[in-house]
Amino acid sequence: MTEFRIDNISHVVIFTTQSYLSQANDSARKQTKVGHKCEVVIMPNTIDEARQILTRQPLGSGVLIYGEEDSSQVIEHLALSAGFSKHEIWINKSSVDNMRGFCSQCHLINEISSFEFFECENCHIKLQPSNHYSTYHRAYLAYPVIN
């Protein structure tokens, strides 16, 4: 796993679910050792609460996220909306390594295992994943197959 090290960051807020708390605490200790001020936050129950935590962070802050795919993505999007740049947000990749295919017809993000054809779980259209990747959705765009 890549270490979170950005020279111009002085303060780090770490969002974590209970299941990743020990990893998050380890990370906080490492960040403190290299001179970053750290705040560990258990994943908030509401979007408003998470937004408030993000917007009160001082300039020069970074965001670390430990959690499952969905909750990590929500925090990432809130952080982007709060003005953090992509370089100031880091997500624990170990929990989000599955490939995802974005259905271009109904927008459902499907879990996929390869670039082979798959059927969308929602609209049941046969789709072919492309190499067009969204870091925002963390998914590959999948096109319908027309016979």
Binding site: S104, H107, T135, L141
Partner: peptide, 10 residues
């Protein structure tokens, strides 16, 4: 919907 939030290059 797919390109929302994406960087120009991507």
């Amino acid at each position: 919907t797919f390109v929302l939030g994406m960087e120009f290059k991507s």
